[in-house]
Design a protein around this nucleic acid. Structure first.
Length: 330
DNA sequence: AATGCGGGGAC
DNA sequence: GTCCCAGCATT
């Protein structure tokens, strides 16, 4: 590998610029797998505390395989994309039973492990020379090769992945992949790339052409969908009226949720407490929170002690609603 | 090829 | 407000 080629220059930069992240302090494949699951569509800064807490509680595949559903979700609550947690536990069950898969091909068979995650774990944990192509790498390679193809199109992604593969330093695959991602996360940013700080500035065709700010090309996005949601906080002493969603409900399965007015029998009086906004992907919710007093317990609903809430899987929207209800008003 | 899936941070 | 993040599974 030529030290002044693309990979050599990138690796030299990475070795002095790399952030000290918790999953970079270990060579345990299980820990690396956990980090990659959490990092799917989730920023490094968000994952860090979750990762530490999760590994403290589930230090190995066997302990995770034995976790209860509630405790698993409680440790994931707030991270989003909760099917990741279930897939990760299923993967842990397979690992506890049959050992850790040592190739990207074998990793790919684990639930929740796609092309990227398989390549990332195989290269970082085992040095397998495969490119790990995430959003960062697509952006970096689109600029380095001045590729004006639309980033969501499979043909474009294949082309950019091939460009990454050509530049891969096979004897340092893990560091090379992490270096490309690190570059995308800290220098080659989606907006306002810091080209003057870039170690591979001289290898970048977009920079040479002045097109770096308009790459990668992305399809126009559909507009936001606005919806109104009403939630009711019903108290009985220090207990709250909650319901746990079905374990096999596709969406937010196993999470505890607050009732809506339609869930309450007898059309009780609602006392408005306030509103807040909550956005998930393309949906923007205006959430109205009220309180109500109830004499009976609706079928399917339960009284949960407020003190038990921290240990239960609760979505961020529910958390916000409860926080509003526990403001000085109540 | 399109869509669902959470949430948050940067601008 | 919009964008986009160390994506994956399903249709």
């Amino acid at each position: 590998m030529k030290p002044d080629g693309f990979a050599g220059t990138l690796l030299a930069w990475y070795r002095q610029a790399r952030r000290k992240l918790p999953w970079r302090q270990t060579s345990d494949p299980y820990a690396i797998l956990v980090s990659e699951f959490m990092l799917q569509q989730t920023r490094v800064s968000v994952v860090e505390p979750y990762f530490r807490r999760f590994l403290k509680r589930f230090p190995d595949a066997a302990s995770l395989a034995a976790a209860t559903d509630a405790e698993l979700l409680a440790h994931w609550a707030g991270l989003g994309y909760y099917s990741r947690a279930r897939n990760l536990r299923q993967a842990a069950e397979a690992i506890a039973a049959s050992g850790f898969p040592r190739s990207s091909e074998a990793l790919r068979r684990l639930p929740g492990v796609g092309e990227y995650t398989a390549a990332a774990v195989a290269s970082i944990a085992f040095g397998e020379p495969v490119p790990a192509v995430d959003g960062n790498v697509l952006r970096v390679m689109a600029r380095v090769t001045n590729d004006a193809g639309e980033i969501a199109v499979p043909a474009t992604r294949k082309r950019l992945a091939a460009e990454a593969a050509v530049r891969l330093d096979a004897s340092h695959a893990g560091d090379f992949n992490q270096a490309l991602m690190e570059l995308g996360a800290t220098i080659c940013l989606p907006r306002n790339p810091q080209c003057l700080l870039c170690p591979v500035l001289g290898h970048c065709e977009a920079r040479a052409c002045g097109t770096q700010d308009s790459l990668p090309v992305k399809a126009s996005r559909s507009t936001a969908i606005r919806q109104e949601v009403s939630l009711v906080v019903v108290k009985r002493g220090t207990d709250l009226l909650l319901r746990q969603r079905d374990r096999d409900a596709g969406r937010l399965a196993g999470f505890w949720e607050l009732p809506s007015p339609g869930d309450l029998p007898g059309n009780p009086a609602l006392r408005p407490l306030g509103t807040f906004r909550h956005a998930i992907t393309r949906y923007q919710y205006t959430v109205t929170v009220s309180s109500a007093v109830l004499r009976t317990t609706p079928a399917g609903w339960a009284w949960v002690s407020a003190g038990a809430l921290p240990d239960l899987p609760i979505t961020t929207m529910t958390r916000k609603a409860l926080a509003l209800a526990h403001s000085p008003l109540c």
